[in-house]
Design a protein around this nucleic acid. Structure first.
Lengths: 342, 342
DNA sequence: CTGTTAGCGCTTTCAC
DNA sequence: GTGAAAGCGCTAACAG
């Protein structure tokens, strides 16, 4: 027999109660005879009874589930954010459905549909590098399901967002390079569809300007997060007549790839060329040379996102607030910019 | 207004059809007038209609959802396995709910309950290092919900499993150390509650025996995956009167920690002491020295697990098959054992 | 304190 | 080809 799921009716029959009473006993309703409750709970335990969330969700139109959509799963960034998110969500009695869009817009749209069909009570999203159209996310708002963006946000949607101060982080990182005497600083920039790329680029530009360094167009290379291409771009930079003496990369994976390429070319880091990343991935402290990078409070990002989401869930649509929480970054100086950081 | 979800009744009313017809149009039932279907589909699109999975699950007792429980999220191993799993699952029309138990038995039990309440159609699990009691998982089998284990499996449950040939992998790794001339090979072993630890330990032991090397008890150190402790254990090993000339670590994170400690002590790798890991984490090729390790086909593991699960889901409980798929590993030789691997 | 009734959104016979 | 009615498992008034 295909195992029959125990229901409250089964419990009710065996105990000679109505299913309402059983339901009340199970949900902790106050008006239940303690003995009745005890009997119900015991039998439930004995028969492996489990509440059917689908039935409950159907009634309440709440699923106690929060959806999370991330572009990827491979760098340590997103898993760690999710860790923080899961912590807060679990505490508040919410489950989490995760899906990753693999940097594909199509997949993101499909994932969003699934979240909708599963009646998530809220959605936490970081968009793919391809995403330009946001209809699949606007539906949520229209239906009264709150959304929170983090990291890669959608500027045109007025909803809560959790970001770090990318501008400031980038500015500080580049200023640090300048202070170590670098003058031709290249930037491996992110796709400019993402505001995060733009903010980091601006931080880079302003740092140069502040220190009266020229902005050299050929040193600014936008790329699309395809790791294989870093190879090409870095080699291109190194082959310039006047090659850069430093590289500020949009993120750590990129910086790490860059370091590999530079090492292969036999150049010295940081003497010939310094490298800075962004995010402080798990790997960054382990590689040789260890990577100077802008650290983000990953877990806190996840926590903050869920907190904002829960707050929205509590409110009526008319009282939704589109706060943006901007968290601080911290420059971690390591050997890729300073031979001996004290 | 808290956004009202469009239902088939809404569609039916606006089109002057019964909800049955709308339902049939939506689900692709053959007996529907093509024009009717077209009208329904168009209106559905226009009104952002989304099928309510809870209602459907309630009727069918199927959720088209597969649960995955993993012990952690930080090493690259599990995310990558999940990647492979998600691919196959999505293809087959299944969604995935992921939860991570944080190496805590309690959390694992709670997660399992959630999966049950959500009526997952199948469960894919890698247990925590603490898990000794399996009642929370046996419930699934009793209820006719198939389970598949991977990586960290439960020996006492007769269900499908996906593992790699840990014994062989460990054997090969240790034999490699021996062939490079190492004679006092230590083993940072996993908790022996996990069969995976035992299998790798056996591979280690048999390799020593095959080459007539003595098994030295004090060189075998079981530990519980708490990264901070690696420091202590490795220092302990290095302080022995006769210190080991190689370390075979249960996994890459451990090996990487060990390398840091050894470097800090000013010893040369691999000359003074060689190190081998297990899993070929993303980091392993990037650190200095790069890590010799036993590579696992991570994505394939995820794919295989879901394939086995889908197969069980199709069958009646009476026809369940408890196959174990054992995948092969591959030794990747890098600088932590050979100064210049050609 | 407990039982009765209705209904959440959908699929699925069974009629027509 | 379409409609009417029943029911999945559960909660939530409303009675008593």
């Amino acid at each position: 027999m295909k195992g029959h799921q125990t229901t409250i009716v089964d419990l009710a029959k065996q105990l000679n109660f109505s299913k309402s009473t059983v339901s009340r006993a199970l949900t902790g309703h106050p008006n239940v005879n303690p003995e009745t409750r005890k009997a119900v709970l015991e039998l439930a335990e004995k028969l492996d009874y489990q509440r059917n969330m689908h039935a409950i969700s159907l009634i309440t139109s709440k699923s106690s589930t929060i959806g999370i959509i991330v572009p990827e799963f491979i760098s340590s960034y997103f898993p760690q954010v999710i860790l923080g998110a899961q912590e807060v969500a679990t505490q508040a009695g919410y489950n989490i459905i995760i899906s990753q869009s693999n940097e594909s817009y199509e997949t993101e749209v499909a994932n969003a549909k699934v979240m909708l069909a599963n009646q998530v009570d809220g959605l936490m999203v970081s968009i793919t590098k391809e995403t330009r159209n946001f209809d699949h996310l606007k539906v949520f708002v229209r239906k009264g399901i709150p959304i929170v963006f983090f990291n890669r946000v959608c500027d045109e949607m007025i909803v809560p967002k959790v970001v770090v101060d990318d501008y400031e982080g980038a500015f500080t990182a580049v200023e640090h390079l300048i202070q170590t005497g670098k003058k031709r600083i290249a930037h491996l920039a992110g796709p400019n569809s993402l505001s995060i790329s733009v903010r980091r680029l601006n931080g880079y530009l302003d740092a140069l300007r502040k220190h009266s360094l020229p902005v050299i167009e050929e040193l600014i290379i936008p790329y699309d997060f395809t790791p294989e291409k870093v190879n090409i771009y870095v080699n291109h930079l190194l082959n310039l007549k006047k090659r850069p003496d430093a590289i500020f990369a949009i993120n750590d994976p990129t910086a790490i790839e860059a370091i590999q390429v530079i090492k292969k070319r036999g150049l010295k880091i940081p003497e010939d060329i310094a490298v800075v990343g962004f995010s402080n991935d798990y790997v960054s402290s382990l590689i040789e040379p260890s990577l100077t990078t802008v650290s983000q409070p990953v877990q806190k990002i996840g926590q903050a996102a869920i907190e904002l989401l829960l707050d929205q869930i509590k409110r009526d649509v008319s009282e939704w607030k589109a706060v943006t929480r901007m968290l601080n970054t911290e420059l971690i100086i390591r050997n890729s910019t300073v031979s001996d950081p004290s």
